[in-house]
Design a protein around this nucleic acid. Structure first.
Lengths: 189, 189
DNA sequence: CTTCCGTTGCACACTGGTGTGCAGCCTATC
DNA sequence: GATAGGCTGCACACCAGTGTGCAACGGAAG
């Protein structure tokens, strides 16, 4: 039914991943379609990006709430979260770059609830003595999953290789000792 | 002599820090000058940004080579580097955002040598058993000082507060145990 | 006073992207 | 074969930013 629309969304994600400043024309031709057609589905560039972001927030929130609900210690919950988040984060890595720039404000607003959830998890870890407190929870969570996105961004070839590295790195910067971090990252796909 | 030119450069850094997509007009009026005058000093927008980047690379390279030369262990060298780098990184935090976008390629090229120096230091730490090896040295160094820039970016109010946090965070993600990281970050301003 | 130089203010051409309107086309469906 | 809906191919208006040309202004130095 909306096969074209879906293809545009998928292709837009890939194209914007390569170059966050790509225009509608670039996205259109990459989707094997004419620019006019894109405007037929999305009245404006902002609409396209907003739709993309909403999809991303939806998927990520689902993963996070699921991982957070498991009554594991914060360290394990985080490890599970990152492992499950990885494929999604990898797909939507462009959002990190998109938070700045023209539509930064709109995207920031959509990402807000997710940020809060994330900060909550980190806070839980800090209160439980599992995570370090060299930074406040909200900032620490941002920096940590910023690093995850950065690793995802440097891994253009969709390797599952990065999942372990991202988990370990983020756990390390959350203050989890290296031995425990590698252990937590170990029992995963 | 070139007082106007210097002011334009300084102001451009601040303005681009707020909004990396700011145009020549925006920079000009922020510098209390007319757009035409900016073009009198810098033939093109790229020239302005390149000059800015060259200044940044110069300052950072000086700090890094100095810290690297001290024959301390890699952990201490890194801590000293970040502490000294901090004010500079804070000033030039916009470069992180500028690496993507229109002039990304030009900036990337200018930053190349610095990246190599950085990777060398991390490699030295890994070989000496001081830093972890969950990521290759070049990538690990990028992610680590990316985090430093991210912390600098979230700290708009030029607080020296961030210097400690940035040092600790980057040391943690390099695999240095928390106790040692806080110790290394401790004997600083 | 004159000369020089940086700055100004304006006009201009050009580019590249956005968003719209509309006629036509192709295809699946009735 | 008629109809409807999505896609196309062009046209256009519009905007924001870049970079240039040129005459004029004002102050500092000779």
């Amino acid at each position: 039914m909306n096969e074209t629309r879906d293809r545009i969304l998928d292709v837009a994600l890939a194209v914007l991943g390569e170059n966050p400043d790509a225009g509608m024309g670039e996205i259109a031709s990459a989707a094997g379609v004419v620019r006019r057609t894109v405007y037929g589905h999305f009245p404006s560039r902002l609409d396209l990006i907003r739709t993309l972001t909403e999809r991303a927030v939806g998927e990520m929130t689902a993963v996070l709430t699921e991982a957070d609900a498991s009554d594991a210690r914060a360290g394990a919950a985080w490890a599970e979260f990152i492992a499950r988040l990885w494929p999604v984060a990898h797909r939507y890595r462009v959002l990190l770059a998109l938070r700045r720039g023209e539509y930064g404000e709109a995207i920031h607003a959509l990402l807000g609830p997710l940020d809060e959830l994330l900060a909550g998890l980190v806070k839980r870890g800090q209160d439980g003595g599992v995570f370090a407190k060299h930074l406040p929870a909200d900032l620490l969570s941002q920096i940590a999953y910023g690093a995850v996105f950065a690793i995802a961004d440097s891994d253009r070839s969709n390797g599952t290789l990065g999942a372990r590295a991202a988990t370990i790195t983020s756990l390390l910067m959350l203050g989890v000792p290296e031995a425990r971090a590698t252990a937590l990252a170990g029992d995963l796909p």
